[in-house]
């Protein structure tokens, strides 16, 4: 039954070698595969348009979109800057409002009972239905759009942070009581650090939602020639059958979304990497 072998014990058996090789390949593939997919898609798009001679007011070729990005850069970059500001301000205000309200809710049960239902109502009412009203009452189109984007972005921050602030280990809570911690100390040294992973999860969602809120608001509010950001530009381009500009604006919106996601993910990783399970590199 025994298998005799004269070979010295290898430092790594074949299974381990295979696993290591696979890990290396995966690392490279993780970056190269999406790039290849992107290149192939653009190529297929280009060939489809040129071979079938699709008119540019139906589908512009990627080269044309790229060219428009340059020729219209003045207009597009200005619009992109507006949308970026809109999204980031909305996100910042969502963080301030969401965290402040979450702290209020966890410090006072009465406040939570009184106001939480209204936070939910604000969240479940589609912002697109509220936007026209906001447009009537708020003079500045930018401010009106900002309010819309804020409404959409703030709820995940509020909801996640509220749960997070209540999630501290109950034994640690007891320990803080035994050591006579003040309410303030409990908040700063226990509840806020415990809430951090939850807050950062909410931040990632809110980052995406801030952009969606901004785009929706621009569609509704920017329509009347207020010349807001990328979404207004996109809508206007569609009216003019300027599809190259439409695609260019669309790509910029996508790019903005990716950047916001990357930034919030980076913030999350940097804040948690030293201690939280979600950010640890596990060696298998």
């Amino acid at each position: 039954m025994t298998i005799a072998s004269d070979a010295p014990t290898p430092t790594m058996d074949s299974e381990e070698l295979r696993r290591a090789r696979l890990a290396r390949i995966q690392l490279v593939a993780k970056w190269t595969l999406p790039v290849i997919v992107m290149a192939l898609t653009l190529l297929a798009w280009h060939l489809y348009v040129t071979i079938n001679e699709v008119p540019h007011y139906i589908l512009p070729s990627p080269a044309m979109v790229f060219q428009t990005m340059f020729t219209d850069w003045g207009l597009l970059s200005a619009a992109a800057w507006v949308t970026t500001k809109l999204s980031l301000y909305a996100l910042a205000l969502a963080v301030i409002g969401g965290v402040a309200l979450a702290v209020l809710f966890t410090q006072s049960k009465w406040a939570e009972m009184s106001f939480f239902p209204y936070a939910v109502i604000l969240q479940v009412t589609p912002v697109i239905a509220v936007a026209p009203l906001i447009q009537i009452y708020v003079d500045s189109a930018f401010a009106a759009a900002l309010i819309c984007a804020w409404i959409v972005a703030f709820f995940p921050i509020l909801s996640n942070t509220t749960i997070g602030l209540k999630s501290a280990d109950h034994n640690l809570r007891d320990l803080f009581t035994i050591y006579g911690a003040t309410r303030w100390q409990r908040l700063i040294f226990l509840d806020i650090p415990s809430a951090l992973p939850f807050f950062l999860g909410g931040l990632k969602i809110a980052g995406g939602l801030a952009l969606i809120g901004a785009v929706v608001a621009e569609f509704v509010i920017g329509r009347s020639g207020t010349g807001l950001g990328l979404a207004s530009t996109l809508l206007e381009a569609s009216y003019r059958y300027n599809f190259a500009r439409l695609y260019a604006a669309l790509f910029l919106i996508s790019g903005l979304g990716i950047m916001i996601f990357a930034a919030t993910s980076l913030i999350s990783h940097l804040s948690l990497r030293k201690w939280h399970e979600s950010a640890l590199n596990r060696e298998s």
Binding site: D174, F176, Y179, P193, W275, H276
Partner: peptide, 25 residues
């Protein structure tokens, strides 16, 4: 007090965990 679980604050270092009773005072 020592509980059944170590009940440490995961977000900070050993020294700061031990310093907690002083910090709260």
């Amino acid at each position: 007090v020592v509980f059944q679980e170590p009940t440490l604050m995961p977000w900070t270092t050993v020294a700061k965990n031990v310093a907690l009773p002083f910090r709260l005072r």
